[in-house]
Simulated assay, not measured.
Amino acid sequence: MLNMDFSQRLTLPYDASRWQPSPAAGVWRYPLEREQAESGHVTSLVRFEPHARFPEHQHPQGEEFWVLEGTFSDENGDYPAGSYVRHPPRSRHGSFSDEGCVLFVKLNQFAEGDTGLLHLRPGQDLWITGEHGYRRLPLHKHAGVSTSLLDFPAGGRFPPCCYKHGLEILVLEGHLSEGPTRYPALSWLRFPPGTVPGLEADNHTRLWVRTGHLQPVTRVE
């Protein structure tokens, strides 16, 4: 098990030495949280070298990913950087990348009743300007769990409401700071309910954010 105590605060600045080979040649993993070696709850970065392939496989409790760099492909099409995809529980696919790509991937984390397929590509988005001066791109919402992109100007700060039921962040662009500590792109942070960190954008900063999910969740069997 890796980082599976959701009651604990966790901040992981990006460290390029943490990449590990996967069972498929040319596919690399950067583990963030993991229940078991090759199954169960998993959050990770995944890197495909050019022309790398991962054989067909099933996701018993769903798969979602955000394409950070390059273009990811499977039987359903091509997903360039800036795409957000959700494959429902018990779905199957093989995957590959002709040019190479980097993904942020979450496996086997769909809640009960969350069975929808979602393919959101660049150009299909609708940003909303919030009252605190940042922009938000809603990606998905189910049973009190919300997934969004947040885009902050320099000096932008999280409103306290974002922390109420737990908060998970992947820094996509720019730098996020908490006091003297700075988190560059690809840093991953997780805060349990009740935590109120003072997070501020050093410069123009874009984040993948999930809230409301660090309470007990019933999974699809």
Rank of each mutant, 00 (worst) to 15 (best):
151 D>G: 04
220 V>Y: 10
164 K>W: 08
140 H>A: 15
32 L>C: 04
148 S>K: 06
17 S>N: 13
110 F>W: 00
218 T>E: 11
165 H>P: 04
188 W>D: 07
33 E>N: 09
128 I>H: 15
66 W>A: 02
95 S>L: 04
133 G>L: 12
174 G>P: 06
112 E>K: 12
170 L>S: 08
162 C>A: 11
220 V>S: 10
179 G>P: 11
46 V>E: 01
79 Y>M: 09
99 E>Y: 02
145 V>S: 08
203 N>S: 04
78 D>G: 03
76 N>F: 08
22 S>D: 04
24 A>C: 08
20 Q>S: 09
110 F>Q: 05
48 F>H: 14
214 L>I: 07
73 S>L: 07
97 S>A: 14
80 P>D: 05
73 S>M: 09
176 L>R: 04
209 V>T: 06
166 G>S: 11
116 G>D: 14
133 G>R: 13
147 T>K: 03
48 F>E: 14
87 H>D: 04
158 F>P: 00
8 Q>M: 09
9 R>C: 02
92 R>Y: 07
41 H>E: 12
72 F>A: 13
78 D>L: 02
210 R>W: 02
129 T>E: 15
110 F>N: 02
166 G>M: 06
80 P>K: 04
150 L>I: 06
107 L>W: 03
140 H>P: 00
42 V>Q: 14
219 R>M: 12
81 A>Q: 02
172 L>A: 10
143 A>N: 15
198 G>A: 13
72 F>P: 03
129 T>I: 05
27 V>L: 04
119 H>C: 07
126 L>K: 11
37 A>T: 15
79 Y>V: 04
30 Y>N: 02
89 P>V: 00
111 A>M: 13
178 E>V: 08
120 L>V: 12
8 Q>V: 06
164 K>S: 11
125 D>K: 13
27 V>K: 00
119 H>G: 05
147 T>I: 13
42 V>S: 07
150 L>G: 07
98 D>L: 12
43 T>N: 06
110 F>K: 01
68 L>F: 05
49 E>N: 13
214 L>T: 10
36 Q>A: 15
184 P>K: 05
21 P>A: 09
121 R>F: 03
150 L>R: 13
179 G>S: 10
95 S>R: 02
5 D>Q: 10
3 N>V: 02
164 K>V: 13
98 D>Y: 04
87 H>G: 01
19 W>G: 05
88 P>Y: 01
33 E>A: 15
134 Y>L: 13
76 N>E: 08
133 G>V: 06
88 P>R: 01
163 Y>F: 15
115 T>M: 13
190 R>W: 04
124 Q>M: 14
128 I>L: 15
192 P>S: 09
154 A>V: 01
